[in-house]
């Protein structure tokens, strides 16, 4: 019975591997749907003491960001278990499709299976990001791969919803600068992944503006500045 979490991982199915973590699908409880495990495995190139404290801090940071979003009714996967010592975070498994795969240029052909137009998807994205920023959560890695489209129960309008995922690089900030950079990262992700997507991204911004109210003016001004100089602030002068 030495380490139950590692045994749980051994019995789970690996579905994705990144540089920072491995993603598994497993079943935790009887009579409950399967969950996703994000294992930040130990990095042998780091000193053991530093490795465990960094891993612990990142698992904790991700969990806190998610709870903050949930409390503000931003749609994100719920937390199912935390084992910070092992670097394991258990999350609700989102049954849907990455926005990246739905938009042109992202791989799959769109078959309209979710019953929403591309423009409606953009509006959902903008609204969801606005809600997240109102809670002062800065995602840090907004791309079309980190947004899932999920079907809603029958007779709901619209018939699908956007769920934001991967809060591994998330921070909290109320500054228009950080929110503008978050949007800028998404804009670059759009233009590099999906050809001719400028009008689509404009719909995201329109919905974002509508959703963020008075805060929009300052963020919009910042976004123009960020576009001129890039994501990093100039350190000259």
């Amino acid at each position: 019975m030495s380490n139950s979490t590692l045994k749980l991982i051994e019995s789970s199915k690996l579905i994705k591997q990144g540089a920072e973590a491995k993603i598994y699908v497993t079943t935790l409880h009887p009579n409950e749907p399967p969950i996703l495990l994000k294992h930040r495995f130990s990095k042998k190139y780091r000193h053991a003491a530093l490795d465990s404290s960094l891993t612990r801090a990142r698992v904790a940071g991700e969990a806190r960001a998610i709870l903050r979003c949930l409390r503000s009714e931003v749609r994100v996967p719920g937390i199912r278990m935390v084992d910070a010592e092992e670097g394991v975070l258990g999350l609700e498994l989102i049954d849907g499709k990455a926005v990246r795969q739905i938009l042109p240029g992202g791989g799959d052909d769109d078959d309209g299976e979710f019953g929403v137009t591309h423009d409606e998807i953009m509006t959902l994205i903008g609204t969801e990001i606005a809600k997240m920023h109102l809670a002062n959560v800065i995602h840090g890695d907004l791309t079309t791969s980190n947004m899932m489209l999920r079907r809603r129960p029958p007779n709901c309008h619209p018939p699908a919803e956007i769920v934001l995922i991967d809060f591994g690089l998330t921070s909290t900030s109320g500054l228009p600068e950080d929110k503008a950079v978050d949007l800028y990262v998404l804009e670059r992700a759009f233009s590099s992944t999906h050809p001719d997507s400028e009008p689509l991204f404009q719909s995201v911004l329109n919905a974002y503006a509508a959703g963020s109210g008075k805060a929009w003016e300052a963020i919009s001004r910042r976004l123009d500045e960020v576009r001129l100089r890039g994501r990093k602030r100039s350190m000259v002068g």
């Binding site: 904790a60 709870l67 719920g78």
Partner: peptide, 26 residues
Amino acid sequence: KLPQISALRTCIQEVVVSSVAMKSVM
């Protein structure tokens, strides 16, 4: 500590379950 007027029960359940799951790193 959820708002008394707060909306959907599914939303409340999600916040509650997630709070319990992450207590060790609260």
